[in-house]
Each structure stands twice: as C-alpha cells, then as structure tokens.
Amino acid sequence: MDLTIFRKKKRYMTIFAVVLIGITILSAKMTNFDFLHGIQTMPKAFNWIGSNLIVTEQALEKLPSIMDKLIETIFLSITATTTASVLALLLALMGSRTTKINDFFGNLSRIIASVYRNIPIVAWALILLLSFGQNALTGYFALFLATFGFLTRAFIETIDETSSSSVEALRATGATYFQVVAKAVFPECSPQMISWILFMIETNIRSSTLVGILTGTGIGFAFDLYYKSMNYNVVSLITISIVIVVIGIELVSNYVRRVIL
C-alpha cells in the first residue's frame, strides 16, 4: 500500500516537473528570452557592478542626508504597518469564522481583505499619486492599504487556527462577545499577530524604497535622484545602507519572535 502511494506521488511530481519545465520554455520563447545569452552576459554585469558601484570618500559625504531619508522611510513603514494592523484586527474579528458577528459581515470582511491584498503596492502608489501628489502622505496610504489587506487575511487565519477551542469553552459558560475576544482570542493569537506585524514592517521597509521612487519621498527618492544623475558611488552607498537596515530590522524581529512565541 505504501509503495503504491509512493509511486503515485512520484508520478505526480514527475508530471508537475515536466509541465513546469514546459511552461518555462514556452514563456522564454514568447518573450524572446535567451537563457544562454543571459548566462554569458553575467560576467560583464558583475564586472560593471565591481567597477561602478564603489563607495568613495565623496559618496560618504552624503551619508548624513542619506541617513535622514532612511530614518524617514523606517518611521513611515512602522507607522503605516501599526495603524493598518489596528484596522485589520477589527476587520479580522468580523471575518473570522470563530468570532464573526454574522455571515454577511464575515463574507464582506473576507472580500475586502482579498481585494486589498491582491492590488500590488505599486498600483496603490500610482492610483494615490493622482489624488495626493508626490508627498509622504501618498507613500503612507500606499503602504497602509497594501498592509491592511495582507494583515486582515493573516489575522483571520490566525484567529481561525488558534482560538476556536477556547472560544467555544467561554461561550459555553455564558461569556459575552467582548469577554470572549479579550479572554480567549487576544491571549492566544497576539504572539502570532505580533509576528505578522514584525514581518510586515520588514517587508514595508523594502517596499517603501520602490514607493519612494514613485512618490518622491524617503530613501527611494534619494536612490532615484542619484541613479538618474549617474552618481553610482552614492547609489552604492544607499543600497548598502538599505541592506544593513533591513538585516538589522530582521535580526530584531527574529529576536522578538523567539521571545514571544
């Protein structure tokens, strides 16, 4: 029996691999992408990076202004994530099968979460750019809306997975809706929810670089400015600064996760 199941899984995996390879080859043909040419040009690309993306003494003089933009980007990402998480939690409570008020609000919450989650952050930035112009508010709302959709979906799944038994036990004792949320949902779900919030802060710091290019704010604006002026030494410094900050935020997030989980 086990051998039959193993052979069946192996056959399915083989079919999947063949289909995936076929789709890859077909996509390359449709887009005129040459794998061999791409591999052959990689040494030239790395040579250009090594020759141009070098941090010089003149580039280091721009470090204070770069750090100001980077700090602005970090705080913007944190603010957008934390405020979105509050609204996402309220919607998740209505959308979860465990804590929903009724089927109408439950389905409505899930639809809203799906719509907002599936609109790319770049699309949000371009849409809001027409209304608010190039400023920090546009970047904030773009990060906020994308984060709101993702966290709502994540919170709904977290509540459904971790708190159903505790909720049923409290309801059996006659507890009110708010007592159930405060005594069963929050204590069990908060560690996982905090983990999701930390993950989104990391993601938004990376995303805000791209959003900043479109909205003319933060570290993304500085990157775009020096890139267009072909000042690649400063571009290299900005890139390294972003990488260091993201790694630092990730290390802090991992430490917090180990403590709370």
Rank of each mutant, 00 (worst) to 15 (best):
K8F: 05
F221W: 10
I159G: 11
V243W: 07
V211M: 01
T239H: 03
A136Y: 09
L108V: 12
S165T: 13
N102D: 13
F16T: 01
I71Y: 00
S229N: 13
T138S: 11
G50L: 02
S236H: 05
A172L: 06
L90E: 04
F199H: 12
I260H: 05
I156R: 14
I127K: 03
T41W: 07
F16V: 08
L63N: 10
K100G: 11
Y227S: 14
T215I: 10
I119R: 04
A17D: 05
L70H: 00
T31S: 12
I242A: 04
L26G: 03
D2Q: 11
F150M: 15
S114F: 14
I156Q: 14
P43A: 07
I71C: 00
I39L: 15
F141M: 09
N204A: 05
L90T: 05
T79V: 09
V234G: 11
I238P: 04
V86E: 00
V86L: 15
A113W: 07
G106E: 10
A184Y: 05
V246E: 06
A59N: 00
I242S: 02
Q192M: 12
V246Q: 05
G139A: 08
Q179E: 14
F33P: 03
G216R: 04
F223H: 06
V243L: 13
S51H: 10
M200N: 11
L251H: 09
I5V: 09
R7M: 10
A80P: 10
S96G: 07
G106H: 01
K29M: 13
L108M: 13
A17F: 11
Y226L: 07
L126N: 06
A80T: 04
W196K: 12
R117N: 14
I25L: 12
D224I: 09
E72M: 11
I119Q: 00
L63K: 12
V18F: 10
A146V: 08
N52P: 04
K44N: 11
L143W: 01
S77D: 03
D2C: 10
R171K: 15
I25D: 00
G220M: 07
I23H: 04
R171F: 04
S109W: 05
A169S: 15
A113C: 07
N102W: 09
T4F: 02
V234Q: 08
M30G: 03
I5T: 10
L108E: 02
S241R: 03
G50P: 04
M230K: 09
A84P: 02
L91W: 09
T4Q: 06
A80V: 08
A125G: 01
F144C: 04
F150C: 12
A169Q: 11
A92G: 00
L143D: 07
L129C: 00
S236Q: 06
V18D: 02
S131N: 08
M193I: 13
T81V: 10
T147Y: 03
V122L: 15
K44W: 00
L137Y: 10
A88F: 09
A125W: 09
T239W: 08
A184N: 07
F75L: 13
K10I: 08
T162F: 15
M67L: 15
